[in-house]
């Protein structure tokens, strides 16, 4: 499957956007684990804005920035949202309330605990009537969500916004599902060549098991730190692809699945 990337966005600890991320991945800047600011989504009405949790803000921010970078109207793109844990904060809070037979369940928390909450708020904010898919694939959410987004783009012949995000899992659920840091990535995928695309991407699935392409950056310290982030946050597994786009040139990248792998070939435009 061949798609073009007219725009992308990153929001993560120490990476407050694609430009700073690009500089780090090219070895032009150092990476610091500065917690990233999550802006309240300006597109939502005040009462809805108040209800958005940090992870909804993360997803909406990268979705909006990716569309802006690609120069496309958020109301026109198909949407594929991928996340391992979804809103772990809300799920954890509901599980705590459910363990207490006397405690009430917050209706707002209940409808915010669905895995498609971030995508729901995104379509409300962008007044979109376009399709949404919301996927979960544990540690392999990034690769399988990218595969699915590329498939939708080429089959439907439509531009697809892929948004993949995960955040730290709070306690006590974090005892059993350790996830650290904040990482969100947004990628606009076009099934047709577009002017000023960042890269052309060939995406395929391979049934044989393969390890992730190891992230290697010019700066050794950044390499070590960001490899740890790839390990700790499923969305950060996009970093080898982002590093390839940042550096330019042609690259073959493998994204491991629990079974099989997703094979990527990046070609500069």
């Amino acid at each position: 499957m061949r798609v073009w990337i007219p725009g992308l966005a990153v929001l993560a600890d120490g990476m407050a956007g694609w430009e700073p991320a690009r500089a780090i991945l090219r070895g032009e800047d150092t990476w610091q684990p500065t917690p990233c600011a999550l802006p309240p989504p300006a597109t939502l009405a005040p009462n809805e804005r108040r209800r958005t949790s940090p992870i909804v803000r993360l997803a909406m921010a990268v979705a909006a920035e990716a569309c802006a970078a690609a120069g496309c109207d958020p109301a026109t793109v198909h949407n594929v949202f991928g996340s391992s844990n979804g809103d772990g904060r809300v799920v954890n809070a509901i599980l705590q309330a459910l363990a207490d037979p006397a405690a009430g369940i917050s209706p707002t928390q209940f409808h915010n605990c669905v895995h498609n909450a971030a995508a729901g708020y995104w379509t409300i904010g962008s007044q979109s009537h376009q399709p949404v898919a919301c996927l979960g694939g544990y540690d392999w959410s990034w690769g399988f969500s990218l595969l699915q987004a590329a498939a939708e783009a080429v089959v439907e012949g439509k531009t697809v916004l892929l948004c993949v995000y995960d955040m730290a899992m709070p306690m006590p659920l974090g005892q059993k599902r350790a996830t650290r840091g904040t990482f969100g990535v947004g990628l606009v995928l076009s099934p047709h060549p577009v002017p000023h695309a960042l890269a052309m991407l060939d995406v395929d699935y391979g049934a044989e098991d393969a390890a992730d392409t190891v992230l290697t950056l010019p700066d050794a310290q950044a390499t070590t730190a960001l490899r740890a982030l790839c390990h700790d946050n499923p969305a950060a597994r996009c970093l080898p692809l982002l590093a390839a786009i940042a550096r330019g040139g042609t690259h073959e990248i493998r994204v491991a699945g629990d079974v099989g792998h997703v094979a990527l070939r990046v070609t500069p435009c």
Partner: peptide, 11 residues
């Protein structure tokens, strides 16, 4: 099976 696998979760 050995093909790609995914869960779709949208309520």
């Amino acid at each position: 099976l050995g093909g790609p696998a995914l869960c779709v979760s949208m309520a």
